[in-house]
Design a binder for these strands. Structure first.
Lengths: 197, 197
DNA sequence: TTCTCCATGTAAGTAGTTACATGATTGG
DNA sequence: CCAATCATGTAACTACTTACATGGAGAA
């Protein structure tokens, strides 16, 4: 095993007044009209969940942080004895979001896929077991392509109204899962041929 | 914001005698010939780092766990007063690895990409700022395609010697980054056209 | 001798999770 | 009145990270 230094720390430390990524995600969703922690969670599940998730337990502390920094303004609107807080983005918040979006820092691409790890090690398997595993990975991507395509019409509608970027990210999701399906099929043939000798 | 229940817990709890994923990664690398914690780390950096990472601090506890479960056997081989332990996989270890690779459990696909998140929110930007951001994401994938292609010859060589699956995962990496480049270019045109009105 | 690589180990911290508790409102 | 949905908050935990300490071996 030869050596090959690599690096750039996975999570570079935050600069001056930067926020942690989840806070920017929350800020972005407030900008798009999500008013409460609950609505933010729903919005994430409906839109970016294919490349970013956030748990409810992270959202409320993020909102507090954003409010302390005056990037959002919250007002209390309780339901009976249950507290409820509704938020809107401030001018400063808009500015902070745009600054984050245009920051020159490198953007790490972080994929953590146990499916690809399994495929990588699949030479430890018999041919037919490996074929089954590959079929599983392929099906997973094909299903994902289906789910994403079912949202496409809504994203196209949004694009016509000026929000093109959700459609862009959706198309990227479709494209790269389709790419994984294609490579799977190519290799299914190859594994089939090699089984013939 | 309408509701849409989703779910499946991100990290389903481990069954009976399953190991955490990092331990299987370590086990797989020992099987491929990495003998020490250090070599395992090198092997990960040289091969699966594009879809899985593992920090050195995780490796040693994983090796201890694997040894306690008799999935690997370690022998001490110190250098001077510095301890060193070399590991080999056991028959039981081979079996556990194959069992994991063939397990019927669903394989979650977890992508966490701040680049796609930024693109999703990019309607908050002016057209030329959005174009710059898209160019950044495109460049990142194009560079990744380049890096991966530079490894391709080595993977093809390994494939000829019977290890086809590293080539498979490499091709998947190339394909889906290429897909992201393609979609980027398609949208660059679209954004350009819309700027003309 | 100084640098880089081989090699292990641990302390302290961060980021994130699940699970649970609470309770109001709406629709069947 | 019961179930589902809207809505918030927190405690306990897991996974994982960075940073540092240690030290041998070989090369320049």
């Amino acid at each position: 095993m030869t050596h090959m230094p690599l690096a750039s720390p996975a999570r570079p430390s935050l600069r001056h007044d930067d926020l942690p990524s989840p806070a920017y995600v929350v800020l972005g969703m407030v900008r798009l009209g999500a008013r409460s922690g609950y609505e933010i969670k729903q919005a994430v599940e409906l839109s970016i969940r294919f490349f970013w998730t956030i748990s409810q337990a992270q959202i409320y502390p993020s909102l507090e942080l954003l409010e302390r920094k005056r990037l959002v303004r919250g007002r209390s609107d309780p339901r009976g004895r249950r507290p409820r807080r509704l938020y809107t983005i401030t001018g400063e918040g808009e500015r902070a979001l745009r600054e984050w979006l245009t920051a020159a820092e490198p953007i790490p691409f972080e994929l953590r896929d146990i499916g690809l790890v399994k495929l990588f090690f699949a030479d430890a398997l018999d041919r037919d077991e490996a074929v089954t595993l590959l079929a599983l990975v392929k099906r997973r991507s094909r299903e994902r392509v289906g789910t994403l395509k079912s949202i496409e019409a809504a994203a196209e509608e949004a694009a016509r109204e000026g929000n093109v970027h959700p459609l862009l990210t959706l198309r990227m999701g479709i494209a790269f899962h389709q790419a994984m399906v294609d490579v799977s099929e190519e290799f299914e043939q190859r594994l089939g041929r090699e089984g013939d000798d």
